[in-house]
Simulated assay, not measured.
Amino acid sequence: MFVLTIDQRGSTGDRDRVPELISELRVLTDPAGGAAFERSVGDEVQGVLADPGAVVDAALHALRSGRWYVGIGVGHVVLPPGASSREGSGAGFVAARRAVEAAKAAAPLVPLSVVSGAMGTDAGGTPAGDEGVRACANAEAVLRLLGRLVHERTEAQWRVVDALRRLGPDRHGRQKQVAGELGITEQSVSRTLVRSGWQEEWAARPAAAMLLEYARTRIVGPGGASDAGG
């Protein structure tokens, strides 16, 4: 499982943005097998996801505004069916707490961290999770690159990117439609997409998800088994 703990940056000098983020993340992600995003404490949001692609979606959405620290914990989760994330326990939650604290300490880097929730020893008796730790570090590196890309995108670039995304998964040949919707030329749409790094982002998202999933399969849970089941 993947536990995301997302904390608002500079909350003492800003309004409470938690309800807005929760609404946005609930549209983006399907909590099937996990727990929907909700306020955990203060200006903090937490959710449990089974799908690594949804983790990537949630993390990059939070990083887009630059207003959030994002911690991703990978590991065993105990969560009764239908329970909220506040009722959950397990190494994945501990790892998510460590991850968000690491994200806060990451300045001036992209404020995201991925932490392994490995426990015990593996079948060979070596400390648990060495490979899982490396896999989490690799996932973190790719997500930080993507996070910088989405955070540095200008408002004008986001207008074009968001318009294209609203057209659905089949984006081939849709630049003309975007141009008509926004009242700009098709050439402007094309140039903006190139400058925004949109193609690179969407090409790399599956790689980030694959690395998260690999980390999940390599992390040792209770009993010394790989935490492949959550």
Rank of each mutant, 00 (worst) to 15 (best):
G117R: 00
L143D: 07
A105D: 15
M119H: 12
D122V: 02
A99E: 12
T126Y: 12
P127W: 06
N138A: 15
P111S: 09
L112Q: 07
G147S: 04
A102Y: 05
G124R: 08
L143G: 02
L145Y: 13
L143F: 05
G129K: 12
L109F: 08
A128Y: 12
G132P: 03
L149A: 02
T126F: 11
G125V: 12
H151D: 07
D122N: 15
L145T: 04
N138S: 13
L149Y: 00
P127K: 02
T121N: 08
V150S: 02
L109P: 09
A128L: 01
V115D: 02
S116Q: 11
P127G: 03
A105R: 15
A137S: 13
A141E: 11
G125L: 14
R134N: 01
A102E: 14
A135G: 14
E101D: 14
A102Q: 11
V114E: 02
P127L: 13
R144D: 01
G147N: 04
A123G: 02
V115L: 05
T126N: 09
E131A: 15
T126Q: 13
T121S: 11
H151P: 07
V150I: 00
P111T: 07
T121L: 08
G120K: 09
G129H: 09
A141P: 06
G132F: 04
S116C: 08
A105T: 08
A106F: 05
M119F: 03
A105M: 10
M119W: 06
N138D: 14
R134V: 14
A118V: 08
P127S: 05
R144K: 15
S116E: 06
P108I: 09
P108V: 14
V142T: 02
N138T: 13
A107G: 13
A102L: 10
V114I: 12
V133H: 00
V133A: 04
S113K: 02
V114C: 04
R144S: 00
G120E: 09
G147A: 04
V150E: 13
V114W: 01
M119C: 05
G147H: 06
A141G: 01
V114G: 04
G120T: 09
D130Q: 06
P111Y: 09
G147F: 00
G117E: 03
A102V: 00
A107W: 11
V110S: 04
T126M: 09
A135D: 10
L112M: 08
G117L: 00
K104H: 14
C136A: 03
A102P: 10
L112W: 10
P108K: 13
G125E: 06
V110R: 00
